[in-house]
Write a protein that binds this DNA or RNA. Structure first.
Lengths: 211, 211, 211, 211
DNA sequence: CATGAATGAGCCTTCATTCAT
DNA sequence: TATGAATGAAGGCTCATTCAT
């Protein structure tokens, strides 16, 4: 468990909160981060008032969703590191399983204001830092294992992951899944290429990613 | 030359129109497709009324911008095919040079309504079809040349291109450029991998991309 | 009781709704159906938002007002039929008391769009049909009584009523009242004329009034 | 001839002006006095600029139309007085022939601002006064002839005329014509009624009509 | 002088947020 | 505490009027 509101809530309040979060994820993914708050409330089966009692404003809601997603990814990164036999395998699992992060990334891409909200949240920064650190370790280790090409840096990998998180155009969800998976494999082949084509510049670090 | 308003405009009207388009591209890229029309007008140095005289509503403006971008990409795709020595080279150039398409893709990704507007515009569909046809040819030819791996389809390549169009996180535009270029090279290595890892499913066709 | 929103409203919401309706009637009569919504809201002592919560757009408000008015007229037509000793008396009372309809007629006369809104509302059509049916009965009965001249049809009477609903030019409301009443009496004399001058064409039916 | 712009205009300017007036009458009658100026210009086959050169603003255009109409009515009133054998016949002709006035009346009814514009135009006041004077004479004379009932005043007649000018509801223009004509005959019978029912109050004078 | 482009004020409508019930 | 009503600021769009071509 990584990110959650600390204070105990009464059972029904808790349930409301969860319903709101679930509705928000759904709706943000579907309609973007500018959906009317009332729409979120409706899907959660509560009144707007209740929503606002739980989350003082739209930003707070977005932050909460992002926290949950980043937390899940971090948990997964750690689990992968611990459970997979090789760093390369863990890296692959991480890239494949970052599914949850998709929503947050989409939020960020979708609206500058959502992005700002996330960037300025210390909790999220911390989660992000944790993820990046884990990625950093995995990259080094995978290179030491001799599988991952030496000329890429953790920043390169992070960037590729972030690309993979984007929604791809497709005629159905199943096709989208297929396309994403195939793209991942191509990219993994590229990351394994040895000797690959010379990469321009220098390995990209986490710092280069900014924010 | 591929897409433009046919009717002659008075010199000043023409100039205004161009300024509006330029401002729109800028602003859409910067703030998303929901920016106040007034902001676009201001940057173009005209009144809202002028903007609305030229483009009856936001959708029309978005469509116009998308048309220009898709048109530029199609032109480039044809030029690449004609000018590059090999199909593979042309493909690489196309992937690298689709810069202009970025904006449109971003527009599309950014808002469902913008996407709908583009999808329903016959002119844009036609441009898209042209681009896809060119891509299709290049993929086949590059495979015939023995450089591009045989197990990818044009849809796979199109999907990878569309990923590359997304903005990558970076601490500066220069870094973003670097990251994007390095990611491209990694992906190209992946596309050249022979024998690469087995790709799941079947080659993705243009049709699979939907719309 | 003839036309009203069924759903229960909170006491304050109910009050607001009523105030809005009252303000709308006043303002429509005074300034026409194109008055700024804000003006209506102000007179009702509420914010525009409240107005729009209750009536999704101007048309809805116009329809609501029209429904109330037509409903009142229908109620009155039935009451007159039931309470007056003769059909002629009931007819006279109806012509005199259609006061409430005035506003709706004015709305309709004032703007094509308002008219369209009313014409397309099934509830209003039904009320109108009811009024017309009542009028039809009264005309026949009054002719059977031998008071109303035989060569007029219900459509003729309806048309005369509709003329009487218009605002007459006058230097004060009291004078307007006087003028309208005197005009009514003159018209009633004309309707009683026996033998009157030959009327051109044929008796006008309700159907001839169209819509 | 009674009302017209005095200054000589160049032939083409004259033609433009006439086209604009014709278009305005048409459009005002059809769409009301709030039609976009551009619509009027289009129907007149000129640019807005030309329209505004001829009529400084909407009000001026409305006034011009009203002047023409009132002028025509006054001409007709005088002609009727001169040509018809009896005052009663002249009165009937006037009531029937006021067709042209319809538009102006409709304008006035349609919008408070249009009404104000007309009321404040000295030329229009003068025309109106002329018409009223003629009506006054005819009423007196017709009463002297013993045809028109004695208890009505010229104001009563004017009011009845003004009612007849309104558009009646009908399913076609032909029916509207029929209905209007029949209503006129009924009213004329009412005006001839002798002894009619007692009219309330006192005869209405021209002064009572206000403005 | 005619034209139609440009301007900007004004009204419509939506929705984030607050607050009475 | 949950609800949903009320508010008002903000953005879309239209059109009267002005002005450059």
């Amino acid at each position: 468990m990584t990110a959650e509101a600390g204070t105990r809530l009464r059972a029904d309040a808790r349930r409301n909160r969860d319903q709101i979060m679930a509705a928000a994820k759904e709706v943000f993914a579907e309609l973007g981060p500018d959906v009317p708050m009332e729409e979120i409330a409706r899907r959660a089966g509560v009144g707007v008032g209740t929503l606002y009692r739980r989350f003082p404003d739209r930003e707070a809601l977005i932050r909460a969703v992002a926290q949950e997603n980043f937390g899940a990814v971090l948990d997964d990164a750690r689990a992968a590191t611990a459970e997979e036999p090789t760093a390369w395998d863990a890296l692959v699992r991480l890239m494949r399983r970052s599914r949850d992060l998709r929503l947050s990334v989409r939020l960020a891409v979708l609206s500058p204001s959502a992005w700002a909200a996330m960037r300025d949240d210390p909790q999220i920064r911390q989660l992000r830092d944790g993820i990046m650190a884990a990625l950093d370790d995995l990259v080094r280790a995978a290179q030491a294992e001799g599988v991952l090409r030496d000329d890429v840096g953790p920043g390169d990998v992070a960037a590729l992951v972030s690309l993979l998180l984007r929604r791809v155009p497709a005629d159905s969800d199943a096709t989208a899944e297929l396309i994403a998976e195939r793209a991942l494999v191509v990219i993994l082949d590229g990351l394994r290429a040895d000797p690959g084509s010379p990469l321009p510049g220098r390995p990209v670090t986490i710092r280069d990613l900014g924010d």
